[in-house]
């Protein structure tokens, strides 16, 4: 999976937690989940759990800390899915 492919899929993971649909459609690696997409921090764990289910990966404490922006989410998903190969 390329980073662009992960980004496209990530939009679907983030979608239930943001009303900022235009911002979501235009996300790039620097997009911050809280300040740009207005996702409530109380939903950050939901996003981690949904990403785990979608990619069949396990995201530990340290990896979860990186998932504050889209680039960080892609890093974690890329790293964890590569570990499975």
């Amino acid at each position: 999976m390329t980073r662009q492919e992960i980004l496209t899929e990530l939009k679907k993971v983030l979608s239930p937690y943001t009303l900022e649909k235009e911002a979501l459609a235009n996300i790039d690696e620097s997009t911050n989940l809280i300040t740009d997409l207005k996702i409530n921090s109380a939903n950050l764990v939901d996003i981690i759990i949904d990403a785990e289910s979608k990619y069949n990966i396990e995201i530990d404490y340290d990896a979860a800390d990186k998932m504050v922006n889209v680039g960080g989410c892609i890093d974690v998903i890329e790293e964890k899915t590569n570990q499975q190969i």
Partner: peptide
């Protein structure tokens, strides 16, 4: 602040959820 009407009760009780933090 946490609005208790906005939380997912079932998911919160799942071990894989709360052990994340």
């Amino acid at each position: 602040i946490i609005d208790l009407a906005a939380i997912n009760t079932e998911r919160t009780k799942e071990q894989r959820f709360y052990t994340k933090f």
